[in-house]
Design a protein around this nucleic acid. Structure first.
Lengths: 110, 110
DNA sequence: CTGGATCCGTCAAGATACTG
DNA sequence: CAGTATCTTGACGGATCCAG
């Protein structure tokens, strides 16, 4: 993965660019989640992709991974303090996204 | 390209998701640009990818394509009125991206 | 000048099976 | 429960050639 970004806006796309990363973030912004919780909440994601994207987000410092060494393994993912700075960004993006989706329905042809 | 997005935040990623789309938008937010202008401004992009992404953005209603039927063909791309609503979104994203890049330099290991 | 068409390499994503 | 390993597929991106 090339890391030669000249413009900061590319950084955000890089961090959120995966197919499932925005959805993962969205759910973690709501509350902490376990691995299986996320699997249930995100229909269509495979455990492989989920683990891979979670790892990416963790390496980016956006989420934290907490392992509870209990008999049934339990791992919780949560937004890091730093990751929480993404919330306002996500809200702005969501806001625009909603408008965009509505617009596509209202104006089929310009 | 799948278009089954359940969350608005995915829409934004979808619209900006290409490798060059954020940069294209960034330049068009500054001022209108011709095809060849963008090619010069974005080192490394091929005409194919530029045309492809420009078409995507146009179909998304974010940019407008104006053809001047002159002897040497001239085509100008500009942000649509609707596309301008993306500017504040881009600014927020840029702002966060800058902080993220600085953070990576300051904190090599958590 | 502004692209479209085509071929090809690369890499992310999906499916499946297996492990601690 | 929470992943990893491996294989396959398909989209994305690059290079080149061609056309209005």
């Amino acid at each position: 993965m090339i890391d030669q970004r000249e413009y900061p806006i590319e950084t955000v796309i890089h961090v959120l660019g995966g197919k499932w990363k925005p959805i993962i973030l969205w759910h973690l912004m709501d509350s902490d989640k376990r691995f299986s919780d996320l699997e249930k909440l995100i229909p269509g994601v495979s455990s492989k992709m989920l683990a891979q994207h979670l790892r990416n987000l963790q390496q980016a410092g956006i989420i934290e991974r907490t392992v509870y060494p209990t008999v049934p393994p339990k791992v919780e993912y949560s937004l890091s303090e730093y990751g929480k700075t993404l919330i306002p960004v996500a809200e702005v993006m969501c806001d625009w996204g909603e408008g965009h989706n509505e617009r596509k329905r209202d104006e089929p042809a310009s």
